[in-house]
Nucleic acid binder design. Structure first.
Lengths: 245, 245
DNA sequence: GCATGTGAATGGATTCACAGCT
DNA sequence: AGCTGTGAATCCATTCACATGC
């Protein structure tokens, strides 16, 4: 959990990454009934829930539900009503008193707030099992995200294609690919031992956001947002609690 | 974030899953200088960091480093010194005043505390891109975890093998496989629309811990620990902050 | 001297409870 | 009557600062 390598202040340490360094800046655009807000002032916890809310709203929409109250929403998905309302209040007023929220409208608002109404171009680096799966993963190829490239350094892999048909290209061309194909986010799926070097590569190539799946805790220079997502950590914490029998 | 479907108390909502329901119980075993502790009283935040600490210690060990202070450890991996000491204090006294911590010894202690000195058997359900990648993922096949089975309901997939050679078996046999092969943890990589039904299957089969990778927020009955890991959420929160430019 | 371990202080996040609208 | 939006209260996690011990 960190941007920049310097130890961060007090916010609850979501053991993934930290906020970006630098001075807060106004960056929320008006959107419908949405209020202006400062993205960097939004806690990681709230941002993560926002994304979860969108997923839940999509499920409700698929069900054909039009309106929902914070109470019912909380009950169905395991949140707390006031927490939902507080989270939303950060960004504006989206509900109708005495009634609730319009499912589709709220989903549209949150999607826009998350910055998913524009397209983000990803480069997946590392074409092993995980890298290929991520490149083919529908969640990474929809809803605002596009796989712009899949890269590896292994000559035996370069030129081959994933099951879904994404071609593996040479990681040596990263900088060129990033600038020509307007890649904004790097997704790391390389071995732990090489991850730190690849981060430096990404930074030099001009990427400002990196999602790291390698099982090491990486840090990035200020100005680059890096998020560590260690899949094994999830299993281990599950095991920790399960060990109570 | 939840075990049981009932809305939970106050702890900081890591938007993944919630604690197990039920009454707290002593469940920490003595281990070396480790103190007895109540697993259920340990916050998800602390448990997650514990796992991260182990990963960091492994890196230090690989480097050949013997001892490290909380200060240096924090500097290298982006933690805060007192936080490390507080986290460790939950489980015992592992350091030497004036000196620091023995890397290997601390790693061994934490590994044991996390319950990783025994073997956990996993069943991956859903043999799509992600399910196959998870079944082949080295992180899920080492350090205390074993892939006991990979299951799917698609007849065309049953009997085929992943790149690493794991055979796909029929999900209809789940209950049998769980009991015969002593599976403890279910890993869901099925489409969102089917995830809830598969959770019920898992519960009926007797699984007590489930890691859900399907992009829906699921809940499980009390007594079953379920953790939602939505890969896309990570991308979306990264996009949210990156949208500030 | 130096770094751990820990009670006390701090600062956030969550929750409460009610005012305000429909 | 019902549900949102929100200041105030609560609860928890983090951080501080120092006593403790090598």
């Amino acid at each position: 959990v960190t941007t920049g390598s310097d130890p961060r202040r007090h916010p609850p340490q979501i053991p993934g990454q930290v906020r970006s360094a630098g001075i807060a800046r106004r960056s929320g655009r008006q959107a419908g009934r949405g209020a202006a807000f400062d993205r960097r002032a939004v806690s990681e916890l709230t941002a993560t829930r926002l994304s979860a809310y969108v997923r839940c709203l999509a499920a409700l929409e698929a069900e054909g539900l039009r309106r929902i109250s914070s109470k019912e929403f909380a009950r169905r998905f395991g949140f707390h009503p006031p927490q939902i309302r507080k989270d939303l209040a950060t960004f504006g007023e989206f509900g109708v008193r005495g009634v609730g929220y319009e499912v589709s409208e709220l989903k549209r608002h949150l999607t826009s707030i998350l910055g998913l109404d524009r397209t983000w171009r990803l480069a997946v680096i590392g074409a092993g099992h995980l890298g290929q799966a991520l490149a083919d993963y529908s969640g990474f190829r929809s809803g605002g995200f596009t796989i712009a490239a899949l890269l590896d350094k292994d000559a035996a892999k370069i030129g081959t294609k994933t099951r879904a048909g994404v071609e593996v290209r040479d990681v040596a061309d990263l900088a060129q690919i990033v600038s020509r194909e307007k890649v904004q986010i790097g997704v790391l799926a390389v071995p732990a031992a090489e991850a730190a070097a690849v981060v430096r590569l990404c930074v030099r190539a001009g990427l400002k956001a990196i999602l790291n799946f390698a099982p090491v805790r990486l840090t990035a220079p200020a100005g680059v947002r890096l998020k560590n997502v260690d899949l094994k950590v999830n299993l281990e914490t599950l095991a920790f609690y399960a060990a109570a029998e």
